[in-house]
Amino acid sequence: MVQNPKTFENLPKEKQERVLREATSEFAEHGYHQASVNRIVTRVGIAKGSLFKYFGTKQGLFDYIFSHAVTQFKQPLKHIRDTTSDKDFFERIEKSLLAGVDFIEAHPHIYRIYLKMLFQENFPMRDKFLGEVRRRSTKYLRPLITAAMESGELRKDLDPDMAVFYLDSVMDRFFQAHTVPALDGPITLYNTDRQTTEAKAHAITEMLRRGLTTPS
């Protein structure tokens, strides 16, 4: 756990960002076990003791990075939730897909850590971190789904929890396909230009529309 986050957060903003940037890059490149605190402090230009003063242990540093990443990812989703309440449910999901792509492109190292966590069984605290990702996704999606069911946009016979699982799975695979060529498959989403990505996101949400709404 973090030893003294307030001390770290009282540092100049630029120094905080440099520490987090270099630490995130190290974990993304080498994974948790092979990540080196020595390499991090050398690139940042601080004493090793200072890093341990802020975070206690390497685990504490990673825990802080993870929490910081979750907070960053919440911001664009909160913006979508708060500014699209008058929009069609599927338009909100489409915007959420594109916001996720934007976040991954802006923070590729954070997403790379997530993928390592997802596919490496020996990743420390894996169940805790992945469980938190899924809980955050549920917290975002479930109110959208229940509101759309109440308004008649979605079928009223849907199981909200199953709908959350379904949408979370689709969104997670969309991001993976956009980022990892081996996980792309037949839709050719990997590393596409913005126009193609938007077209694919729209196609996905239209397919969801046909499956989750009552036929007219």
Score class of each variant (00 low, 15 high):
V180Q: 03
L144E: 02
R173C: 12
D172H: 12
A163G: 02
M162I: 11
A177V: 11
V133K: 12
K156S: 10
L141D: 02
G131V: 08
L154C: 00
L158H: 13
R134T: 12
A163F: 09
V170Q: 01
E121P: 04
R136F: 11
A177Q: 12
R136A: 14
M117H: 04
P124N: 05
V180I: 12
P124K: 08
H178A: 04
V170R: 00
Q120G: 06
S151H: 08
H109K: 15
D127Q: 10
R136V: 15
D172R: 12
E132M: 08
R142K: 15
R126D: 08
Y114S: 04
L154Y: 07
F165L: 03
H107P: 06
Q176D: 04
E150Q: 09
L115R: 11
K128I: 13
F129N: 06
A177L: 08
V180L: 05
A147V: 09
I145H: 06
L167F: 13
M171D: 01
A106Y: 10
F129K: 03
G131F: 10
L167N: 05
T146Y: 03
I145Y: 09
V180K: 01
K116Q: 14
A163I: 08
M149H: 00
D172F: 14
F174Q: 01
F129M: 06
H107M: 09
L167C: 08
V180C: 03
S151G: 05
A147Q: 15
R126H: 10
P124R: 08
S151R: 15
P143R: 09
N122D: 15
A182C: 06
E150V: 00
Y166P: 00
V180Y: 08
E132R: 13
V164G: 06
P143C: 05
L167I: 15
Q176G: 00
A106N: 10
D127A: 14
A147P: 01
K156I: 06
A177C: 07
S151D: 05
Y140K: 00
N122V: 15
D161L: 14
F165Y: 07
I113G: 05
F119W: 09
K116N: 08
Q120R: 10
T179N: 01
M149T: 00
A147H: 14
K128S: 09
R155F: 08
I110W: 13
R155T: 04
A163Q: 02
D127T: 11
K128T: 15
V164T: 10
G152F: 00
V133H: 14
F165H: 02
F123I: 05
V133P: 02
R134G: 02
D127F: 10
P108Q: 10
I145E: 02
Q176C: 05
I145F: 11
P108W: 13
P160L: 00
K139I: 03
M171V: 12
I110D: 09
H178C: 06
P124D: 06
L115P: 09
E121R: 11
